[in-house]
Amino acid sequence: MNVFRILGDLSHLLAMFLLLVKIWRSKSCAGISGKSQILFALVFTTRYLDLFSNFISIYNTVMKVVFLLCAYVTVYMIYWKFRKTFDIENDTFRLEFLLVPVIGLSFLVNYSYTPTEVLWTFSIYLESVAILPQLFMISKTGEAETITTHYLFFLGLYRALYLANWIWRYQTENFYDQISVVSGVVQTIFYCDFFYLYVTKVLKGKKLSLP
């Protein structure tokens, strides 16, 4: 464990809490892509199958449970509790365009063909594209609530911190997880234009609105 990974996990946790706070306080999930949240729930479900079979540490187990809970509570709030505020007509990204290539790739490129390993690989590839429906929705509506931009910032920051974690682990323990690193780079690149807008607009107190 290193500081980049701890900060990354905390940034990830903060992002999920920010989203839950936004939906709970505003009693609305306007501007949130339910499809992205479904994909995140799928990412955690397929990645944490070893939750009970492969004990790493208390921290690891607790964080996996918390992440799974946050993901499913968020999906529940969007598609059930506050479903009247869910603007489904703007959440139109075709999930099959993401799932088909990700499923294909996880069978083509993985570390081994065991079911848990292929599912783990699927979750890594899926996570790198899971935010696309959300970013697509924002580009379609042309704006986003400020707390939603904070959510996206910390969500993007978490994987950027993981990149630093992988550099650190390569230097210190010669650890190299190629699938995670390549997917993490792709994932972080998808956030770049959002990061630019976040720094140039939101941090200057303006509302995030796309030209």
């Binding site: 990974r5 990645r47 081994s112």
Partner: peptide
């Protein structure tokens, strides 16, 4: 580390 079995990251 042999990655194909235990992934220790979240």
């Amino acid at each position: 580390a042999d990655l194909s079995t235990s992934h220790d990251e979240l």
